[in-house]
Design a protein around this nucleic acid. Structure first.
Length: 597
RNA sequence: GGGCGCGUGGCCCAGCUGGAUAAGGCGGCGGCUUCCUAAGCCGCAGAUCGCGGGUUCAAAUCCUGCCGCGCUCGCCA
């Protein structure tokens, strides 16, 4: 709790120094939030001081508490100091805390997440090969990436969301070849032979149509060397930036990409810019990079003239420690273009962030070392583990997938059915709108709530969960707050002026326990967001938001805003501030904060 | 085989830059609606934090050895 920390810091620092602590800053760095409410709001462990002070941690904590208690409790912010078992415990004055945070939140709702100076950053995420619809495995990247984009924006950063379009190379080559050489009948025939000829669930989306061509071409390629030859010819031309071939590729993948983006758009995921991989061939930067890497002391040449960096002494171990960046025929590789891409990205932002699947760990490390060699800073990278189906890894090529479009349809249909059961006052359109918001939000939340480095075993019932640890729970709390505000307005009151007057009065006396707990939870909004961003774990902010919703529900239970037609302005103000933060938090998580559900 | 990641109640999962009684949810059991949305709230039961060593005043957290799962070790992307 930073508000309390700022208040006690100086006094505690002085006392520690008087007591003989040589490094009070180091000691103060251990200030933590205690695990239990009866242990205060901040606690300082005194164990490390025991040796130097030749006293027990218990005595040190008690001594420290006694030294600072009088001063701290006489100034604003700290209501009590105590010690227990080697910890010095500090208790915040909740009335004071409320005056510190409520007006700001109310008057500047757009900056509730600000905690430190903003920076500009470019977040590259998703960047999936445009060869078929999103499946739930691939979409973890998009949902994670977009959540980072949203959290950073909430924290005040200037964020650019970027999609790196793989517009050349094998995957697109196969798709282009298939579209040029196959037709619907042929595709059906090939897929049927492998029992993969299922009717597309979304036949009017090009990504669902064309993925069948992609799958068929892959099957054909395995048995017909002519196919491999045809694809290779195309791929080679694309890597030489052959304008005609690149145009063919584009017309092959663009409709697929559009279909994919439509899915993401439904999830509230959008991009500010698209950068094509071929750009770095065309502008010659890849060529320059290959030349420069040739001068590295790590550089080596293979028998057929291929170039690599030897990374054995740079922490890369395994069967091969060589990082090839140029083929024997002089052409570049994907990773080489990625290096050029990073060089360019640094001209666009102060910070770079990449969201990558765990299968890219080695590649990312290799690119990182190459960037070091070129004196180019490394990006921040977030890796996430795969989503597996009960019968194995998802694969577009093999058709072993759950498509995001299908999951979203199902989620929204189920949500709509639930709303329909609970509400009889809404039109079909209103029900569908709520169901859509609930379904999409739930799917996002269920992916975000687990730590990125942990694998997800896909189960329909988990992905579609609307339980207490879910987006609908948070949305429900928000809708409750909206409902209260709505009801008060309907009774002829002016919520805005009621709330403004209450803030001005600054009266926070006699808060109930649940109201106090809510105030404290509200106070840590921006630091919870910040630490979630810093530790690169969106699930932490997820948990915070869940606890904010929980505290709001408890507050709601025993602090009524409307009592027999009379408005309790203090409770109204608390409810309104919670509503603002719930809404802001939802926007940071990609949860749609609807006003009624 | 080498490297990297993961392993927490029956199930899912938080906590991992070391700190107090390991936090939630699902499922199970039991309560709370004359009162602002019960998609809510309250309570009970359930965990030797994969196993063994080590470091430390203190280990789920750090180190190490095993075991299990995943990813990876292409002049593919």
């Amino acid at each position: 709790m930073r508000q309390l920390s700022e208040v006690i810091r100086g006094t505690v620092w002085d006392a520690l120094t008087e007591m003989g602590d040589e490094n009070p800053d180091g000691t103060l760095a251990n200030l933590t939030a205690p695990p239990h409410a009866n242990q205060g709001d901040l606690a300082l462990p005194c164990f490390a001081l025991a040796k130097a002070m030749k006293k027990s941690p218990q005595d040190i904590a008690a001594d420290l508490a006694q030294r600072v208690a009088t001063v701290l409790t006489s100034i604003d912010g700290c209501s009590e100091v105590g010690s227990d078992g080697g910890f010095c415990n500090f208790y915040v004055d909740v009335e004071w805390l409320a005056t510190q945070i409520m007006a700001d939140t109310l008057n500047h709702p757009e900056s509730v997440g600000y905690f430190r100076p903003p920076s500009s950053l470019l977040i590259e995420h998703t960047s999936a090969n445009p060869n078929g619809p999103f499946h739930v495995g691939r979409s973890r990247n998009a949902i994670l990436g977009d959540t980072f984009v949203r959290m950073h924006r909430l924290a005040g950063d200037d964020v650019r969301a970027e999609y790196y379009v793989d517009d050349m190379g094998k995957q697109v080559g196969i798709l282009a070849w298939a579209l040029a050489n196959l037709n619907d009948e042929k595709v059906s025939e090939i897929l049927a032979a492998e029992d993969m000829d299922e009717a597309p669930s979304h036949p009017y989306k090009e990504d669902h149509q064309r993925v069948r061509y992609y799958q068929a071409a892959n099957l054909l390629k395995a048995v017909d060397p002519e196919v491999e030859l045809g694809v290779t010819k195309l791929v080679q031309a694309s890597e030489e930036a052959d304008a005609e071939v690149l145009a063919i590729f584009e017309s092959a993948y663009q409709p697929v990409l559009d279909g994919m983006l439509e899915t993401l758009d439904r999830l509230g995921i959008g991009f500010d810019s698209f950068t094509k991989e071929s750009r770095f061939i065309v502008d010659g930067s890849v060529e320059v990079i290959m030349d420069t890497l040739g001068k590295s002391e790590l550089h080596g040449t293979a028998e057929n003239g291929a170039h690599y960096l030897e990374l054995e002494n740079r922490g890369v171990q395994g069967k091969s420690t060589k990082f090839f960046y140029q083929r024997g025929d002089g052409s570049s590789l994907y990773a080489t273009r990625d290096i050029a891409y990073h060089q360019w990205k640094w001209t666009e932002a102060q910070r770079l962030m990449n969201i990558l699947g765990e299968d890219h760990r080695l590649q990312s490390k290799q690119v990182g070392i190459a960037l070091d060699e070129l004196d180019i800073r490394n990006p921040e990278v977030v890796f996430y583990a795969f989503t597996k189906l009960p019968d194995g890894k998802m694969s577009t090529r093999r058709g072993n997938v759950v498509y995001m479009d299908d999951l979203l349809d199902e989620a929204c249909a189920r949500a709509t059915a639930i709303v329909e059961e609970m509400r009889d006052d809404l039109s079909a359109e209103e029900l569908a709108a709520i169901g859509e918001a609930v379904g999409l939000s739930a799917v996002r939340y269920n992916i975000i709530r687990v730590s990125p480095e942990k694998g997800i075993n896909f189960r329909w019932e988990d992905a579609l969960s609307f339980d207490s640890d879910s987006a609908p729970f948070i949305m429900y709390s928000h809708a409750r707050a909206c409902s209260i505000s709505r009801k008060i307005t309907a009774q002829g009151h002016d919520v805005e002026s009621l709330v403004a007057n209450e803030v001005a009065s600054g009266n926070w006396a006699n808060l109930s326990d649940s109201a106090s707990t809510l105030v404290k939870r509200i106070a840590t909004f921006s630091e919870a967001l910040d630490s979630s961003i810093i530790s690169q774990r969106p699930n932490l902010f997820c948990s915070y938001l869940l606890s904010l919703a929980t505290e709001y529900n408890r507050f709601y239970r025993d602090n009524h805003v409307l009592v027999e037609g009379e408005v309790n302005s203090q409770n109204l103000l608390l409810s309104e501030v919670a509503r603002i933060l719930l809404s802001a938090g939802c926007s940071g998580m990609g949860i749609i904060a609807i006003e009624s559900m």
